[in-house]
Amino acid sequence: MSKFKKKVNTKQEIPTASMPDVVFMLLFFFMVTTKMRETSINVEQKMPQATQLKKLVKKSLISYLYIGAPKKVDQFGKEPKIQANDVFIETKNIVQWVNSEKSKLDEVDRDAITVSLKVDVEAKRGLISDVETELRKANARRVLYSANQKLEL
């Protein structure tokens, strides 16, 4: 019977020579897909949960407004504030902000601008309603209330 016994001389190690290549491939993938956030958000951002979410197709048409209590409470207080790009703005300056955002778009797309309101769950409806009124004046009527997917039970 020993005649059939084969000599086991296969190597037990996993070849690691190609590992750097694999890792580099992953690295390049993430390097290419990573988009560094150009603005740092200075307000609390805990998104509400909802089920009926829609995805926006044209991302270039979206402008963001961040609303929430400031992270630096001792400096800015705890009342929710509106952040556009890198600065806090007042509600009365929203029309101006919308117009400057619109001027960045192509002329044909200007009326299709969508404002994504990233509102913290604790923010009050009063402030958001003021923002909406300003957006109506600025004729930026497509509004997206940013939300996360709620798991349906």
């Binding site: 979410l53 995805k55 926006l56 991302k59 109506r136 009527r141 997206l144 940013s146 939300a147």
Partner: peptide
């Protein structure tokens, strides 16, 4: 980047 949320259309200006 997640651009998901509830989309609404605001009424025209008052």
């Amino acid at each position: 980047a997640s651009d998901k949320g509830l989309l609404i259309l605001l009424p025209p200006p008052p």
